[in-house]
């Protein structure tokens, strides 16, 4: 009979693994307060909060990338919400020829390395002479965000009994009323979770973006440039905290929204 207590070595390895996953991120917070701006000296020679003020007042180069990132993430999320929900609705409705192929097609932009998606879009823009703009970035982001919304929506559709849609129709509601009063309240939290995850993913994306942005700079691209050619390193940490919060909070919220029954909230980033 298997004992219900875990071996000590296993416990240590498991918790050690979790610590390994979490500790590095804490350092980002510590280094935002260091007084040393030229190197990554540890322990920091002194602590200060001035970098938050510096980032806010003295670094106008942070704002345009931030706006662009917010704009791209917002538009991509809306597009992914529409396309992903439509796709999930269709897939949950019927079994038809080519269904598996469509699932694969939705998954592909996430399953293949970002460099392939990025390079593909870059070649397509090249072939068709499309100049880089906000929309070329959105094109890439919306494509890989669809699967996030789709995964969340399809899980909810699966749990939703078809009976309530029939009941709604029997009570005289047309398709649009059923959608507004029955389907949407039931899908709501799953779509909200999917939308937030898509937003977090888009806000943070860098690999595909470097291929589709041309000379434009999103916040992750700004960060990447700071990593390669640093100036005022702690300011990069302040921005990193902002990026971390902008992705961390939606993920946590999405987890609580889809908890219970559906474990698909973040499956397959």
């Amino acid at each position: 009979m298997r004992s219900d207590r875990s071996p000590l070595a296993l416990k240590l390895a498991a918790f050690g693994g979790l610590l390994f996953l979490h500790l590095p991120i804490l350092l980002i917070f510590l280094y935002a307060f260091t007084t040393e701006e030229r190197s990554y000296q540890f322990p920091p020679p002194g602590l200060t909060t001035k970098w938050f003020a510096v980032a806010w007042f003295d670094r106008p180069d942070i704002w345009p990338p931030l706006y662009l990132s917010l704009k791209v993430a917002a538009i991509s999320t809306v597009m992914a919400l529409i396309l992903g929900t439509f796709c999930a609705a269709a897939m949950s409705r019927a079994r038809f020829f080519g269904r598996d192929q469509i699932t694969l097609l939705v998954l592909l932009p996430i399953a293949l390395p970002g460099v392939i998606t990025g390079m593909s879009l870059r070649s397509a823009f090249g072939v068709m002479d499309i100049p880089f703009s906000t929309w070329t970035i959105v094109l890439g982001h919306a494509t890989f965000c669809i699967v996030i919304v789709y995964n969340n929506a399809v899980a909810r559709f699966r749990r939703l009994s078809g009976g309530i849609l029939e009941a709604s129709a029997d009570l005289g509601a047309n398709s649009f009323q059923t959608f507004r009063h029955v389907l949407l309240p039931n899908l709501g939290s799953a779509l909200l979770a999917g939308g937030m995850l898509a937003f977090a993913l888009s806000f943070d994306e860098v690999i595909v973006t470097t291929f589709t942005a041309g000379q434009q700079s999103t916040l992750p691209i700004w960060m990447l440039n700071e990593l390669v050619r640093p100036r005022q390193r702690p300011v990069t940490n302040v921005v990193a905290i902002v990026v971390f919060a902008a992705t961390f909070l939606p993920i946590l919220a999405a987890y609580y929204l889809t908890r219970g029954g559906s474990e698909t909230a973040g499956m397959g980033k």
Partner: peptide, 20 residues
């Protein structure tokens, strides 16, 4: 959550943390 949060949190921030 302990596995999910690092999976989803910012890729660049994680790489940067390792630089430190």
């Amino acid at each position: 959550l302990g596995v999910m949060l690092p999976l989803w949190s910012s890729y660049l921030v994680k790489v940067y943390a390792w630089k430190l």
